[in-house]
Design a protein around this nucleic acid. Structure first.
Lengths: 210, 210
DNA sequence: GTCATCATGTAAGCCGTTACATGATTGC
DNA sequence: GCAATCATGTAACGGCTTACATGATGAC
């Protein structure tokens, strides 16, 4: 889970742990909640496995995305040229490796479908191809249908004698149906090939609808 | 969390672990997910703390709580009936004690507001008084507002350059607003004194409004 | 007698948290 | 120089899961 988040973020830009955490907050908002106590060990684990690597600070901002207008990016770039393997503030700037990219693909594909995991995967949809995206969306849809059935089963079976439980289940059903409708829309848009910029976004940054 | 679930269910009927798990599924549906590996240790913990006690299988069918009161008393009673305390299939039928009821009240009041915890609390709303219910609802409302702000902050700050992230955040906002509206309705209904049967359901089963 | 189910438990492990420790750098 | 922040890490613990072990009971 946390590895998915790290790799997904690092695929976009080389960052050190501290910065990474900020990016997680500003990029995923309520979906992520990672503390340093789990972030750093995870980074070390990933480094040990060769999924990420410490990059020389000179390369730190050279590679990956342009980082247009990022305060941290420019500041880092300014101070960046002192040492090689560790930055000025003892920073360790990480970049994703090919192994890491493979791992990311693997993590995206694996069957874990809970609210948070799916949300995170969706946030990184740009990193995978359309078939994978469709697969994930359909699986999520199935999961939601299952949940809906389960909730309805509760109402049908019992528990409906209590108004609060009833209210809870009804709201749960509604929310789930809402989610299903949303996913269905995403599937439709995906099948229609709605925004083609997603499949090959390296071609052109045509951002948005006409 | 799991203790809340156990106590909330046991307040309604004396049950043994195996049965308890079934009730959790059929009473809370997707909200609960407890495995035996956590259920039994939790029951033992609660028993050690005097929050639940093994009841004689004779009383097992006698619903709700006869439970004399003092922990020492319960323990003595337990020792006295040592032979009867395990049912035919080696069952241990548990009942909630006064200590357990106090613990339940405490758990309901404590500040934990995530999706699942709140859902579980709501499912047990019948066990607490209106002020507590209102307090919980308002806290939840505040939490949701906070989440909404956070999500909007993400959209405003950045991340909106990716259509998937944007879709995710927009859906999150919508869902959260939906939840807020729902909670607001519950608050209104609570303040209006909608169903009075909930506050003192032991008095009279007067089902609903005239 | 044996198989499925009921019933209770233990052990190992995963995944995350909080709290703590340490040191570098900057601003004043 | 001193405080605030940046930056990395460790230790202890919490809560839950899976997998395993054990045994009673009833159906056939």
């Amino acid at each position: 889970m946390i590895e998915l988040a790290i790799l997904g973020i690092l695929k976009e830009a080389n960052l050190h742990g501290y910065e990474l955490k900020k990016h997680l907050r500003t990029a995923l908002g309520p979906l992520c909640s990672v503390s340093f106590g789990s972030l750093y060990p995870a980074l070390n684990r990933l480094e040990r496995d060769g999924a990420v690597a410490v990059v020389a600070v000179d390369e730190a901002n050279a590679v990956a995305t342009p980082m247009t207008g990022s305060f941290a990016g420019e500041a880092a770039a300014f101070r960046a040229r002192r040492r090689v393997t560790r930055g000025p503030r003892n920073k360790k700037v990480y970049g994703i490796t090919e192994v890491g990219e493979a791992r990311l693909t693997e993590l995206m594909a694996d069957p874990a479908d809970d609210e948070r995991t799916f949300g995170m995967k969706l946030a990184f949809f740009r990193w995978c191809d359309r078939p994978t995206r469709l697969h994930l969306l359909e699986r999520r849809c199935a999961t939601l249908h299952q949940r809906l059935d389960e909730t309805r089963g509760v109402v049908a079976a019992r528990g409906s004698d209590d108004p609060y439980v009833r209210a809870l289940m009804e709201h749960d059903s509604e929310s789930t149906m809402n989610d299903i409708a949303w996913i269905s829309r995403l599937i439709a848009s995906e099948e229609a090939g709605g925004d083609d910029t997603l499949d090959d976004r390296d071609k052109e940054p045509t951002g948005g609808h006409p």
